[in-house]
Design a protein around this nucleic acid. Sequence first.
DNA 1: CAGCGCTATGGAAACGTTTTCAGATGATTT
DNA 2: AAATCATCTGAAAACGTTTCCATAGCGCTG
Lengths: 353, 353
Amino acid sequence: MTTIRDVARAAGVSIATVSRVFNGNPRVGEDTALRVWDAAGELDYWPNGAARSLTTSRTQTLGVLLPDLYGDFFSEVIRGIDQAARRAHFQILLSSSHADPIEIVAAARAMRGRVDGLIIMASDRGTAEAVLGFLGRQPLVFLNPYLDPDGCSAVSIDNRAGGRSAVEHLIALGHRVIATVRGPEGNIDAEERLGGYRDALAGAGLSASPQLELPGDFTETAGFRAVSGLLAAVPRPTAVFAANDAMAAGLLGGLRDAGVAVPGEMAVVGFDDIGVARCLTPPLTSVRVDVCELGRRAVQLLLETVGPDGPAPCRREVLPARLVLRESCGCRSRTELPVLARGAGDSGERDRI
Amino acid sequence: MTTIRDVARAAGVSIATVSRVFNGNPRVGEDTALRVWDAAGELDYWPNGAARSLTTSRTQTLGVLLPDLYGDFFSEVIRGIDQAARRAHFQILLSSSHADPIEIVAAARAMRGRVDGLIIMASDRGTAEAVLGFLGRQPLVFLNPYLDPDGCSAVSIDNRAGGRSAVEHLIALGHRVIATVRGPEGNIDAEERLGGYRDALAGAGLSASPQLELPGDFTETAGFRAVSGLLAAVPRPTAVFAANDAMAAGLLGGLRDAGVAVPGEMAVVGFDDIGVARCLTPPLTSVRVDVCELGRRAVQLLLETVGPDGPAPCRREVLPARLVLRESCGCRSRTELPVLARGAGDSGERDRI
DNA sequence: CAGCGCTATGGAAACGTTTTCAGATGATTT
DNA sequence: AAATCATCTGAAAACGTTTCCATAGCGCTG
């Protein structure tokens, strides 16, 4: 690997000058700079990142710790993070599959000296606090923490309000027995969405019941499996709120196989508004969340505290979740819709606005 | 930030000893090691990664360059990469949205000194070769290159065979006019799948036609939009092969809205076999690809060349693509299937085996 | 022409590690 | 008691940069 010294020798200058050229320092003669660029090009030289960050103690890199990488949700978060990061000329050091605080802390340690700050998604309750105890000193931003952590920024999704609005909509449509398919035990998003479901029921004076809260794990299969429990409940529910769209899709598949009409016999609402939601039969009513934006905001917050202006005060942001109405909830019958607009034209974007 | 010197002072030893302790060097007295661990714990010390890689010239990090991060495909690739990497105690430095070779090379340069090797996904034809010209010296693995690049490993998906098997199946079912919805212009996967489509037609003595090759860009919306072209073609096709499942889902949605029965009036086959494929109506026949494995293999190949055994000879791997039959192609009618097995039980996994 | 300020450049000291080499200590052998 | 040896530890030299400080050259001003 060629070093700055090789380039200096080839260009007949000192290493200080080469360094200046590569850092855009204007106090270098034009012809000298040209000679340096030539030599560097010839030797295929580029400054060594590790050495550079050792002296400057800046890395142009953000560490990202996620509990998992499976599914649309994480992929969108990363996409948002990457977008915002590359705009600021930062790179991303990624590590996932961190179940508990101990693993997170270990991974964060391993990143020491390689990152300027950390974005940590703590999907289980209490994780953020535990992690913060160990990692308190460095700049970090939490994604979707259970509570507002002290002394650091966080950005989260208003899962609770989203869940509530979905179920309130079902109630407004006249449903009185409404089931839900839960997310994984201990998962914050899942618990918050469940909380929104319960809030809505309570708000309407409807009673919650364990047999209406079916277990799930955010996979399509869980949705499929939930159908039997759904149909076995007494009294039988007329609507169901799935904690995410993958499970809602599973529900639709399972209900179709079981011969239950949607929304006629069973209204279905999901959460996330994934791309294929409008391609399902019937098109899935879902709670839209801009997950990509979640990632972008996290980066933004982190860069604020990392930035040259010194650490900004920590902030807390909450992203809204909005109900997107389609046919699976029963509030719009398909025939009411202008057929042409849903055809091959721009209908695809219509409910995306 | 506390350094090795602080720990050495606190523990009353030299920095060499502290370094030995943290690297598991056995030639350190037990009580000394204990004192060092204590001091390190007290001061919350962990070795600085940048400094470490500067001396050892190893980073325990793999660079990953992708053209994009949108959709199931990339998210699965990254998941596979992350899985294999963390098993080998490597981290991932990620950078995406690289449209052309120039950007890729720039991003790769910026990673110099921070990674031990690179995994590059060059989704456009010719990109791999162009990149290789600039980055030839360092260890790298290509994902899905257009041609086998010289002098480096690559792993790819057998898109062509997958596309061919899908269309051959439709032909075997008696279809004679078969359309396709293409992926993005210039995209390798898209072109290969299209190639498979044409191979199958040619193999059966059927003629290809531009009006049967509808444009698309791998999004659901593209599938929706393709419906009008599909129905306008003369003679009207009785089957369509979509270059990915997102577009196939869009097709199903659009065909449903247009009142065209699937598979009765129009058989549909997709590619990727995403999770919701079996939740669509009708369940989507698709070509299964283990994208996660693609990522895992790439890491494996890269670690072979990076590893302590010195650079292994470069290898080329091709992952198979297998047709998964469901109802949208018309070869299985829903009523023929055992209803119970497709109910709430294990049916979800049935066609996943 | 002395003195001054400005610009372009070089020398050298950091940055925080790992690792080689040598030395100290104490135990064992002759 | 001297010699050998094994074990543990420390001093110091890398690794490839950035950046502070010094200085050489040069055109002005007075």
